[in-house]
Structure formats: C-alpha cells, structure tokens
C-alpha cells in the first residue's frame, strides 16, 4: 500500500475512510477507491438510433435508444415537451438463479429511478409530443447493474444525438462493515462481517446527484463521505464514457 501511495501523490489527501482502511482487503484485491475494469462501446445495435454497452468487471449492460419519435397512444403525448421513458430488465440467465422473464416490482422501480437519473441531463423540450425510449438489458450481473445500465444508457442517448446538457455517470459505493469502497461486486454485496454490507448506487450529472439509493446501515456522517467518494470515482467513469464516444466519432460541443 505504502509504495502505491508514493506513486500516486493525488491519493495522499486521503479521506477518513481511507485512513481506516490500512489492512482492509477487498475480496478481489482492489483498492478501496478502485472500480472494476470498465469497458464501454458505442454503436452496438445497428437498428437503434443510439446504443452502447458498459461493463464493470462481470456486470455487463447494454442499452438502446429509439427516438425522439411520435408517442402513441396520443393521449400520452405532452405538447410542452418530449418525454423520456426507460425500461430496465435483467435477462433470465444473467444471474445464478434464473429470473422469471418480464417485469417485476424491482425492475419497474429501477426503470423509474433510471429515468429520474437521466432526465436532468436531457434537453428534449424542443421535441413536443415525442418520446425517447431507452431500453436497458443486463446480460451478466455481478452487482451494480443499475449503475452499469445508466452509464450505457447515457452513452446511447449521446450516440442517438439527443440534446444533452452533460453525460450521466453512475457508480455504487459500498460500506463493508465500517469500510467505504467503490463499485460493489456481488461478493461484496453479500458481505456479512461486522455491520454487513450497505449498497449505495450514485449517479451524478453536471456535478449534482441524479441517482441516490441505499440499503443497509450507515451513519449520516459516513454517507456524506460516501457521496464525496462517489463524486471522485465518477471522474474515471466519465473518462471511460468520453473515450467511447470519441471512438464513435461523437464530440462534446463546447457551450
């Protein structure tokens, strides 16, 4: 650990959680603020207006955007603005115990929070009566699937050329016993020692929190640290997303 710190002077401004972390071992040997290997690719589904895949290690999400297109039935249309509609679902064989295909209460809720996370980044006021459909599927799940899904969806939206204020980047923060870590894997989600596992998916856009959920047991002070840790980790996620967009020939417009 000590040698790594000297190699990376940025890390010397360690947070409190980091100081506590001396000797803390993650199941896969990652540093506490290290995500799993990230991969992103834009333009994976030719039929879609925009598409992308994003993975954190063994968690793989793909997303496709169709739209803006006319919304039917007509009574759902909004003459003031375009509408964003998200659906998230896991393939039945993406997890060890088969999931029944189709929607569940869990998938409906994740679809909704995904929509809320992406909406603030979009600028679809000028597309009245239309809908932007975002479909997210999880091919392989090793925890943090909604975060991978949001990252893929944000890329797909940019690929589709939907006007955006910023990209949306998402990562989960975990608390394993008393230790905060970045990008929770399934092995970590099932952590049982001490205070157990707390899972906190975050998404940021434009420097602000767009997605925030939590399950477990955490002190308010620790949560504040978690938010800062997420903000920092998301800079790396953002870079991976930007690289993927660049590769697909999509450039950031200067404001």
């Amino acid at each position: 650990m000590a040698t790594k710190d000297t190699h990376n002077p940025k890390d010397s401004g360690a947070t409190e959680s980091k100081r506590d972390s001396a000797g803390f071992k993650r199941p896969d040997g990652r540093k506490i603020d290290e995500t799993r290997h990230m991969k992103a690719e834009v333009g994976i589904i030719p039929n879609a207006d925009g598409s992308a895949m994003f993975s954190f290690g063994d968690t793989v999400a793909i997303a496709a955007v169709y739209g803006p297109k006319q919304l039917h039935p007509q009574h759902l249309q909004n003459p003031e603005t375009g509408i964003l509609r998200c659906d998230y679902s896991m393939l039945s064989f993406s997890v060890t115990e088969r999931i029944r295909p189709g929607t569940s209460r869990r998938s409906q809720e994740i679809s909704k929070v995904t929509e809320w996370a992406l909406a603030p980044a979009l600028n679809i006021k000028d597309f009245p009566n239309t809908v932007v459909d975002v479909h997210i599927n999880i091919l392989q799940a090793d925890a943090s699937t909604r975060c991978a899904g949001i990252n893929a969806a944000a890329l797909a939206l940019a690929h589709a050329g939907v006007p955006m204020n910023d990209i949306v980047s998402s990562v989960s923060i975990g608390k394993l016993d008393r230790q905060l870590v970045v990008d929770v894997s399934k092995a970590e989600e099932d952590w049982e020692e001490g205070e157990g596992a707390t899972d906190i998916p975050f998404a940021f856009t434009g420097g602000k929190i767009a997605l925030l959920q939590l399950d477990g047991k955490i002190r308010p002070k620790e949560l504040k640290e978690a938010a800062k840790l997420a903000e920092k980790a998301l800079k790396k996620v953002y870079e991976v997303q930007k690289e993927a967009l660049k590769k697909a020939g999509i450039k950031e417009e200067s404001k």
Binding site: W116, G206, K208, A210, L214, D215, K217, R219, K224, E231
Partner: peptide, 20 residues
C-alpha cells in the same frame, strides 16, 4: 446515534452534495 437504513432519491431534480 442514528443510522440510515434505506434511502431513495425520487423525481428529476438533482441535489448537490451540500444539499444532501
């Protein structure tokens, strides 16, 4: 001591860390 056991942000507005 207080513990947060569950949390959810709803709807489209974003929150800065200070707001949180």
């Amino acid at each position: 001591e207080n513990f947060i056991n569950a949390m959810q942000k709803g709807n489209v507005a974003t929150f800065s860390i200070e707001e949180l």
